[in-house]
């Protein structure tokens, strides 16, 4: 429809107008289309309603609940101000959950990104048949949380599991994967990293393959080693993507719930009792809705901070 000359002719004055400043243009359109207001409500209405009911209202409600004591059905009883927060932040139990979560989140992020870089760097080489390896490396993207848990629960199973068989075969000491606090934490970390790897790999690969090859050609002429090229060309060129995918991994790890419920149930001895799992248990097992609400607000603050950081980067990269 754009190719038709009769239509392209009257466009000329419009394009001239377009060269005016953006604000001027917007103002002009603004006064022109007063009717847009009604369309806007029609187009935005459904989304606004859903976000209002299931995102905004519950956030306000959670904040409200966190300032009260509640009975077992979640009705508020006494206003207590910030005392729910104070008791949480001074309880060794909650602080240990916070510490455990931070350890998990950073371990998962660092290991996922490192392994993703190794895989992506290798798979970004132009070799015959590399497409097959790219597909295989991204395969864990198709694994959902319960499937991953089943696969790895079998691998970590103390009596009949795969790792236990290998240890017996090689006469290595048995690691009580899911019953020892430290080992259980690592079991959850390993499973999470494995699940994340496909997605991380694919994003990093996308960034690496769009680094201009001329950079590497120049480095080759200079005789730079491939290690030097990786750290001085690849990493700086993909740093925005690297940052983006790190933040995404951090945020997602803070929200981890499924694997913990399926693999450890927060145990042994609260070693994997992370923030979301705790909220769930405090609210729906113990019926302590007020405390769980305060925990929810703390989680929200943490996630909001990292999301803001991510927006800062997106702003720079996407709105060009």
């Amino acid at each position: 429809m754009l190719k038709s000359p009769t239509q392209s002719r009257p466009r000329t004055p419009l394009s001239v107008q377009k060269t005016k400043s953006k604000i001027e243009e917007q103002e002009a359109k603004f006064t022109l289309n007063a009717k847009d207001k009604y369309f806007a409500w029609a187009f935005l209405g459904p989304s606004l309603l859903i976000l209002g009911v299931f995102i905004f209202y519950p956030m306000v409600r959670t904040l409200y609940l966190s300032l009260f004591l509640t009975n077992t059905v979640g009705k508020t009883t006494v206003f207590v101000g910030l005392s729910n927060y104070i008791s949480l932040l001074t309880s060794a139990d909650y602080l240990s959950s916070l510490g455990v979560t931070l350890f998990y989140v950073f371990a998962v992020t660092i290991i996922t990104i490192s392994l993703g870089l190794v895989l992506a760097n290798l798979a970004s080489k132009r070799l015959p048949g590399i497409g097959l390896f790219r597909t295989l490396f991204s395969a864990t993207m198709g694994v959902s949380v319960s499937v991953a848990a089943i696969f790895w629960l079998f691998i970590f199973n103390p009596s009949t599991g795969f790792l236990s068989l290998i240890s017996t075969f090689l006469h290595l000491p048995q690691i009580p994967w899911l019953t020892d606090p430290t080992a259980a934490m690592w079991a959850v970390i390993i499973t999470t990293v494995w699940m994340n790897l496909g997605f991380t790999f694919l994003i990093l690969l996308g960034a690496m393959t769009s680094v201009p090859t001329t950079l590497y050609e120049a480095a080759n002429i200079e005789g730079a080693s491939s290690r030097f090229q990786f750290f001085h060309i690849t990493i700086p060129s993909i740093s925005p993507t690297l940052f983006f995918v790190s933040i995404i991994t951090l945020i997602e790890s803070f929200k981890s719930f499924g694997l913990i419920d399926l693999m450890t149930k927060g145990g042994p001895t609260n070693a994997t009792n992370m923030l979301v799992y705790r909220i769930y248990k405090d609210a729906f097992y113990s019926g302590n809705f007020a405390q769980a609400s305060a925990e929810s607000i703390i989680l929200t603050v943490i996630i909001a901070l990292f999301t803001l950081l991510q927006f800062k980067v997106l702003e720079k990269r996407v709105n060009y």
């Binding site: 995102i55 905004f56 519950p58 979640g74 803070f254 909220i279 769980a292 609400s293 929810s296």
Partner: peptide, 16 residues
């Protein structure tokens, strides 16, 4: 709303 995790809103949402 992208900053607000759904996981932190399960209590009121469940009640709703």
């Amino acid at each position: 709303t992208m900053m607000l995790p759904f996981e932190a809103e399960i209590i009121p949402n469940f009640q709703t």
